[in-house]
């Protein structure tokens, strides 16, 4: 877990720096979180935020408040309510909150807002975005290397540009490793339900495996558990997403594309506590260790030294700019 140790050192540094600044700042910190509609126990994105916040609470003793919205009007309501009650920083999870953050941040210029997965240009808003295409590229490369049939699959959740960005990065990685490889792509659906339909996810994975795929990557929230299960049941390999899902089906999950929302959350709160919180855009890619692939005891046997070195050199090339991973959302097109 190189990513984690690296970040831990980073945080340790930040923590030491905090000791030198006065404790007065820390005493008043009242962080709050407004989750997206998926809810805080979605086993992926929102839950990652919760984990980050819980780690923060554990390490610093500072409690946080959170709220799960049930409809669009509540985004603004919840943000405003937290701001009014003196909470800061207020973390808005998910791109759907952008409009609400923009509006409420204007009303409360002295409150710090952080939004994950979208960009809001306000002097008191920090925007955290991830380069999912880079992480997906690397797991695509690993998938192609692990595949014996030369066919791999992708199961997305809801058909939105963000998920096509995952898919596009993945396809680029697969083709980079094996230009002749075939990639089957399916989206689970077009509504929010597509994030929580593991049965359909499993069926899509099965149909891809029937056509010869032997590695299937999912970017589908709770639906993806069905994808990983189907791959494991068929003796094939799955690839997890967002958090480390290798342990769900040990030995049957090749790796997981990590999107470190937990670290982003932790860092935001920590920075706020240390007085180091800054507005502006933070793009977290491979270079910033915001995305990456998971390596642990569960998939040690699956990642051969050859695969590992290929992945590492691809990572290095992406960071150095030698490989340019196309971002689907830049032009709504995928070159592959």
């Amino acid at each position: 877990m190189t990513v984690r140790t690296g970040l831990q050192i980073l945080f340790l540094g930040a923590g030491l720096a905090a000791l030198s600044t006065g404790p007065s700042l820390a005493a008043d910190l009242k962080p709050a979180i407004v989750y997206d509609i998926g809810g805080k126990f979605d086993k992926s994105f929102n839950e990652g935020v919760l984990h980050g916040a819980e780690r923060f609470k554990q390490e610093t003793g500072t409690d946080f408040r959170d709220f799960e919205i049930t409809n669009d009007a509540q985004r603004e309501q919840a943000l405003r309510r937290f701001a009014k009650d003196g909470f800061s920083p207020i973390l808005a999870v998910g791109f759907s909150q952008a409009d609400a953050v923009e509006k409420v941040a204007g009303e409360f210029p002295n409150t710090k807002f952080t939004i994950i997965d979208s960009v809001v240009n306000k002097p008191n808003v920090q925007s955290v975005v991830f380069k999912e295409q880079e992480g997906s590229f690397v797991v695509g490369l690993l998938a192609a290397k692990a595949s014996k049939t030369g066919k791999v699959g992708f199961v997305g959740g809801m058909d939105i540009p963000l998920i096509r960005r995952f898919a596009c990065g993945y396809v680029q990685g697969v083709k980079y490793a094996d230009p002749k490889a075939e990639v089957f792509q399916n989206m689970t659906g077009t509504t929010g339900d597509a994030w929580k339909d593991p049965v359909k996810g499993g069926e899509l994975a099965k149909s891809q495996m029937d056509r010869g795929a032997d590695v299937v990557y999912h970017a589908a929230g709770a639906t993806g558990v069905g994808v990983l299960r189907a791959a494991a049941d068929a003796g094939k390999l799955g690839i997890g997403v967002d958090s480390d899902q290798n342990g769900l089906f040990p030995g049957k999950v090749l790796t997981s594309m990590l999107k470190r929302v937990d670290n982003a959350t932790f860092r935001t709160f920590k920075d706020a506590k240390d007085g180091a919180w800054k507005p502006g855009v933070e793009t977290l890619g491979l270079k910033e260790e915001g995305v990456g692939f998971a390596e642990d005891q569960f998939n040690k046997a699956l990642i051969t030294p050859d695969m590992k070195s290929a992945a590492s050199s691809a990572e290095a090339d992406i960071i150095a700019g030698k490989i340019e991973v196309h971002d689907y959302m830049a032009d709504s097109k995928c070159p592959m």
Binding site: S96, A98, S118, I160, P161, T190, T191, M329, S332
Partner: peptide, 21 residues
């Protein structure tokens, strides 16, 4: 309606720069 609207919002009506359908 759900399917049609999702199609339109993702593919046709979406602002090119916006992530949100």
């Amino acid at each position: 309606a759900t399917t049609l609207m999702a199609y339109l919002l993702v593919n046709t009506l979406r602002e090119p720069t916006s992530m949100q359908p």
